[in-house]
Design a protein around this nucleic acid. Structure first.
Lengths: 182, 182
DNA sequence: CACAATCGTTCATTATGCTGAACAATATTC
DNA sequence: GAATATTGTTCAGCATAATGAACGATTGTG
């Protein structure tokens, strides 16, 4: 995959996400329509200033133009041991998620009390959430894909749709990592 | 700050980190020395292919050239409540760390047993680790800045120096997020 | 229906980034 | 110490990215 074609799809993706026409984005960024048109066509070899102008007009950091879209599900149960360095008796660690390309990840500590269900609206497109349950039991996930998790479980899911959190035990604590855009 | 000057310092930083001479990097990347020289001098307006070639030769993703360096300490105790959305009785969440610019964050689940101390070598420059204790008590941190943490505590620290982990309780579990380069 | 506006694409001209050779300044080797 | 690489910089020529006007296609409006 050539870098230009990657940029091409990235620009198109971000532009449609921003609900901007090609002409509007071009004038907003201060570049010629023709330049932008060729770029989105996967042709040419844009300069840094051109890319910068486009990213600024889209109101996103430049690195957002270098990301490859993906989103997926993954559950790692507390008793599933990826044997990574488990030979060290005093320490065993499990890689829950890595971040191959640059991404934005915000880290939250969440306390839940049993009772009502906490609904969360859809986040920006391609947002992914990582949940790790530290204490108690919770049911969470995107609409139609709720998972019941217990202490030590890890769950990753797309969060660009409606999703919810609910404590099944009296109290629950979890680590939530919001990652966008994936 | 102009985008070119940012790239200029970024390239120099990554090149010295890779212990490469300007000439060596140029030939490795397949670009003219003059091009690279001008770039590091903060002049010009590089094309995407040029940047791509340089990043590839440095063996880093392109987005690493757009990051602004920083690193810092932060501890959030379990009983420190950032009142964020604490008005919702059934849910209260605390933002532990956000990620203003693009960054790489790998997520680990770590189990510790009391006894020996786990020593970790210095990671690449500007690496930061986020530790969140889910169970038990641990003493961890960089050399000369060990912190004792208990359940629910969060600790962020530079990990580009030697650091260590030690369980103070019988068993301990924590979430570790490795972020590089910050 | 006709008119106007906006859409995205294509093409000559202009501006400029990339190149390669020549350069002085260190660093290395016998 | 002289000879030889290797460092990073500067400058003319070429390659090409960016431009702006003209284009047909599509949409909106009276």
């Amino acid at each position: 995959m050539t870098p230009v074609s990657l940029i091409a799809t990235a620009i198109q993706r971000e532009r449609t996400r921003a609900k901007m026409s090609l002409s509007a984005l071009a004038s907003q960024a201060g570049v010629a329509k023709s330049t932008l048109s060729q770029l989105e066509g996967g042709q040419g070899n844009p300069s840094l200033e051109t890319l910068w102008a486009i990213a600024s007009a889209l109101n996103i950091p430049l690195s957002f133009l270098f990301e490859t879209p993906k989103s997926d599900f993954r559950i790692i149960r507390a008793d599933e041991e990826d044997q990574l360095s488990s030979d060290l008796s005093e320490l065993s660690s499990t890689l829950l998620a890595d971040c191959p390309t640059s991404c934005r990840r915000d880290l939250y500590r969440v306390y839940l009390k049993s009772g009502s269900v906490r609904e969360a609206a859809a986040h920006t497109q391609n947002t992914v959430e990582h949940a790790f349950v530290c204490r108690g039991q919770v049911r969470l996930g995107p609409e139609g894909n709720l998972q019941e998790l217990t202490e030590g479980d890890y769950f990753r899911y797309p969060a660009d749709v409606k999703h919810s959190y609910e404590a099944l035990s009296d109290k629950a604590m979890l680590i939530l990592i919001m990652e966008n855009p994936g």
